[in-house]
Design a protein around this nucleic acid. Structure first.
Length: 115
DNA sequence: TACCTGACGGGCC
DNA sequence: GGGCCCGCCAGGT
């Protein structure tokens, strides 16, 4: 896992990292961005998520939240509630569109992937 | 072709 | 402590 070939597109790398997020865990755009080497590419990560519909393997974008643990992109899901529904189903408590114990459920790709 | 917006983050005032 | 601004890259209009 991880170690996405530099030949791959940024999006593909992002998808790979996001797919690497274990169930019941969540990560942040900045963490993923840093994992791929794009420190200030948090925006780009979110943008990539916007194109996740293009990815063959579904990207668990619902496991990706902003630095505040808030489901900023939930509005982009088919059923608006799909995002928190999936998170709750995976054991992630979501209240007020934000992840509870975010720091506890936070999954750092940079650390886990040993970049 | 050019301008603007966009699922963010961090720094500065 | 809170609010504002800038920076990143890409895609759509």
């Amino acid at each position: 896992m991880a170690k996405a070939a530099p030949e791959e597109n940024i999006y593909d790398i992002i998808y790979d990292v996001v797919r690497a997020v274990p169930k019941g865990r969540v990560t942040s755009y900045g963490a993923v961005a840093a994992a791929i080497g794009v420190k200030s590419g948090a925006r780009m990560v979110g943008y990539a998520m916007n194109a996740c519909h293009n990815a063959k393997p579904k990207v668990p974008a619902h496991r990706v939240v902003n630095r505040n643990g808030m489901l900023t992109g939930k509005h982009h899901f088919s059923p608006l509630e799909k995002m928190e529904q999936l998170l709750k189903k995976e054991g992630v408590m979501v209240v007020d569109d934000k992840v509870l114990d975010f720091e506890q459920l936070f999954w750092d790709p940079v650390k886990e992937l040993t970049l």
